[in-house]
């Protein structure tokens, strides 16, 4: 292969240099170097930090009681110095609610991804490692889940689990029990892509000689999976989990927007939008600010995830 063939591969211009020129760098340094080249990813990271500061730092200045305080006489007030983002249909301060709503949305995003990732790894690993009947059953199941559009599945599951979980009190704050329901159903409806990725990784890694060697020395299956294969397939998992947070935040927003998600008084960016389409003209601040915050968060995470993919998992491709 001439230089040209290598250099022509526009997507991996660094391959040439990595292969022939530079002394091998530690993997993390290399990843960080690639990541830094992504200006948009850096920007996404900075924005995300600002958004987290907004949601979690904001609560130092505004009490949750204030965010949930209804005051009908001042309902649907236009933005002013006192209420910079205006007030909602029952006179709550929209700015304060975006702060607390952001906390819940982000927490839901992260916890749902933890469930999603655990399920995805578990199912993908079992299918990929054991193969055979287990594999074909699990993959059929995965495929079946993938074929039902996610929103429909979310709606059905939201109904299925209903509002049977009572409100919880945690760290002196009361959360609607529906928060837990939403976290669980988002986790349950989003693990499929990761399961496929993990399965593919397992299928290719388990053919390697070092796995054969581990087997030959009598290492148990669980240990091989956890110690040998999983660490080698961690890059796509990290990327998928990062992007998964954005998707989980979106899912929460969709389901709450449809009125089947987190129930008031607990605010989320999604349920602040519920019913907002009745106020498109009369009170655009009702939907504009939470909508914009969702967009910015998802955008930042997507930029970040894209950079992360290029940095640690350069062989895969964005869709």
């Amino acid at each position: 292969m001439g230089i040209l063939n290598i250099m022509i591969a526009e997507s991996t211009p660094n391959l040439f240099v990595d292969d022939l020129e530079t002394p091998p760098l530690p993997l993390t340094t290399l990843a960080w170097k690639r990541f830094k080249r992504h200006r948009m990813a850096m920007l996404g990271g900075v924005f995300l930090i600002l958004l987290v500061l907004y949601s979690f730092g904001g609560s130092l200045f505004v009490e949750e009681k204030y965010a949930n305080f209804t005051n009908p006489p001042i309902r649907l007030n236009t933005p002013s110095w006192q209420h910079p983002f205006g007030t909602d249909t029952v006179g709550r301060d929209v700015l304060a609610r975006t702060i607390y709503g952001g906390q819940i949305s982000m927490i839901i995003g992260i916890l749902a991804v933890i469930i999603e990732t655990s399920l995805g790894i578990l199912i993908g690993a079992l299918a990929g490692y054991y193969g055979g009947t287990i594999d074909s059953l699990l993959m059929r199941f995965t495929e079946a889940m993938l074929n039902i559009p996610e929103i429909f599945l979310l709606i059905v599951m939201a109904k299925f689990f209903g509002n049977k979980i009572p409100n919880l009190t945690l760290l002196g704050r009361t959360f609607s029990g529906s928060v837990v329901v939403i976290i669980v159903i988002i986790g349950l409806t989003s693990w499929m892509y990761l399961a496929r990725i993990v399965r593919a990784e397992f299928l290719s890694i388990k053919e390697n000689d070092f796995i054969l060697a581990a087997k030959a020395t009598g290492t148990s299956n669980t240990e091989i999976i956890i110690r040998h294969i999983l660490p080698n397939s961690i890059a796509p998992i990290i990327v998928s989990a990062t992007l998964g947070i954005a998707n989980a935040i979106l899912s929460e927003a969709y389901i709450s927007f449809l009125g089947l998600g987190v129930q008031p008084p607990t605010a989320t960016w999604g349920n602040m939008l519920d019913g907002a389409n009745n106020y498109i003209e009369s009170a655009p601040w009702l939907w504009f600010f939470p909508g914009l915050l969702i967009l910015l968060t998802v955008l930042s995470i997507n930029f970040l995830g894209d950079g992360l993919r290029d940095a640690i998992d350069p062989h895969s491709r964005a869709i």
């Binding site: 250099m7 660094n14 240099v17 080249r37």
Partner: peptide
Amino acid sequence: EFIIPEGIVYA
């Protein structure tokens, strides 16, 4: 020559 992120390749 080729200009790539790592520098110039004097081909």
